[in-house]
Nucleic acid binder design. Structure first.
Lengths: 291, 291
DNA sequence: CCTCTGATGTGAAGATTTGCACATGAGGGC
DNA sequence: GCCCTCATGTGCAAATCTTCACATCAGAGG
């Protein structure tokens, strides 16, 4: 059965009883209908209809086909309805991936977005490995660093996350706070263990003597924990630091410290209402994360 | 959803994950598959797949389609199996129509044929009105008289039903029997009420004085009842007369009395195994009905 | 009885679909 | 690191399918 269109044609003929009627419904010429039927009967080796001058009447085989094709027609109609609706509405799954750092900021946004769209299921993926948009693993990715340049991805600038230097009360009581940058050499800092291309990290290594970077971590979460514990002065996103009452801002955020974030979507999904709707929502919510 | 073939293409792509694989299975070029998908997505306004260099992965919409199309594919496969089997096997209905006269002879044949084909349902239609093969009312018709000449019907000569003259015991005891044709003028006969073109009836009216045809009936069954009741000498098919023990053959069957019978089938059904099988069976069984 | 309408059926022209060739790109294995 | 394989994607020619025009036929209605 390798031609579903012919089944569809036969279905309409069986339903309506005439070739001409079926041709009208299908929007094709009646000759086409006749040829479809002939072809189908030839392939199946069964007569589906008895031909007479007043129309086609279905044989037993034709009636059997009618029943099967009727349900198919119904199911396809339902499917088309669902699919067309899905294209224009915000339902189903929305899969977001980002660096784990952004989780505290993103979580309330995702929760609010889902609250606006009750039929939506949010999947928020963070992890060490990069989730690949190309394979449908996510609808939207938030990436840091230099602009990704993969061909099938739609990349747009998001925000520059405001970063500032913070010290915990424990540190302040023990070592005091630097009044300005010139006193940094007399203080202890928290930095990345490995040399990264992150702007604030480069700035840190250029400004502070390497021996003053006394607490080094491998990931952002550990870095945050170190700052909060008073292991040294360290960089934190402003939005994160605001969550702790025991932190004092040592220096206000500067643009040159922050790496740009990028919103990345797959080109196939970028135009969908679901993705567009979320992007708009996200950008509005992120306005005050900016430097 | 006005192109089931495109759904079928999308189904194979969703199932296999690659355009090339789907193209192989479908027996078309991969470019065709791509265009089908593009067309379908365009019509539905939804992305069914995310394209990447290693293949196509289905979106939620694509997975939805996959589920629906999978059942469709299964059902069509089953249907094709049933239909193809039906073309080559003797199952379903077999609808026969004939003059009511033939019922006594036909019934045992139909019973035996059905016994050979347990999946067959026999519908034997007799009645005043002619059942029309063109409208699918019957698979096989047995007609009397001159050869029917409708274009869509396949007509083949069947048999000439052996007719003979019979008298019942009641008649014989009261009037005796004619020794030969010359004594017919002294006997009473049973004939058709209206002038028919049936050969035996024409012969009767030419041979026997009209006033000797004293019992006239409108249909064959009444004619038979009249003969059996001894209302006069009358024509009966030999096969029918044999069923009665109280009948004496007044004159043996003659070819010129009998009208030819014809087997008629609709051209669309004539080549099917069911019809062919029945025709063969019927002709074998009818060999001894012949004149 | 005759016409008129609305069916099916078929050969030829036209339009759409398909197939082909080639380009491009991503992984896997040596 | 490089090649080799196997994907997708696209312009153009070819083949198929569709449409058109016309023929035929059955039945309804005067």
């Amino acid at each position: 059965m390798d031609s579903w269109d012919e089944v569809r044609t036969a279905f309409q003929v069986a339903r309506l009883g005439t070739v001409s009627g079926a041709a009208d419904v299908l929007g094709v010429h009646h000759a086409t209908v006749i040829r479809h039927i002939d072809a189908l009967e030839g392939k199946l080796g069964v007569k589906l209809f008895q031909r007479h001058a007043r129309g086609y009447t279905a044989t037993e085989a034709g009636n059997d086909l009618l029943l099967v094709a009727q349900t198919t027609d119904d199911q396809f109609a339902q499917l088309a309805g669902r699919l067309r609706g899905r294209g224009a509405s915000v339902t189903g799954e929305l899969v977001i991936t980002s660096l784990a750092t952004l989780s505290p900021m993103l979580a309330p946004v995702l929760a609010a977005f889902r609250a606006e769209h009750p039929e939506l299921t949010v999947r928020y993926l963070t992890g060490d490995r990069l989730f690949r948009l190309e394979y449908g693993e996510a609808h939207v990715a938030i990436r840091a660093g230099t602009a990704p340049e993969q061909p099938d991805n739609v990349v747009q600038p998001f925000i520059r996350q405001a970063l500032a230097l913070y010290a915990a009360d424990f540190y302040k009581e023990r070592y005091g706070l630097p009044k300005d940058e010139s006193e940094f050499k007399d203080h202890y800092f928290i930095g990345h263990d490995t040399e990264t291309r992150a702007p604030f990290n480069i700035w840190l290594r250029e400004t502070v003597p390497i021996e003053n970077i006394v607490y080094r971590t491998a990931d952002n979460r550990s870095n945050e924990d170190g700052v909060v514990a008073g292991a040294g002065i360290g960089f934190l996103p402003v939005k994160i630091a605001e969550r702790y009452s025991n932190l004092t801002q040592v220096a206000p955020p500067r643009p040159e410290w922050s790496a740009p974030l990028w919103l990345v979507t797959h080109v196939d999904l970028h135009r969908t209402a679901k993705v567009q709707s979320f992007l708009t929502f996200l950008k509005a919510a992120a306005r005050d994360w900016e430097v």
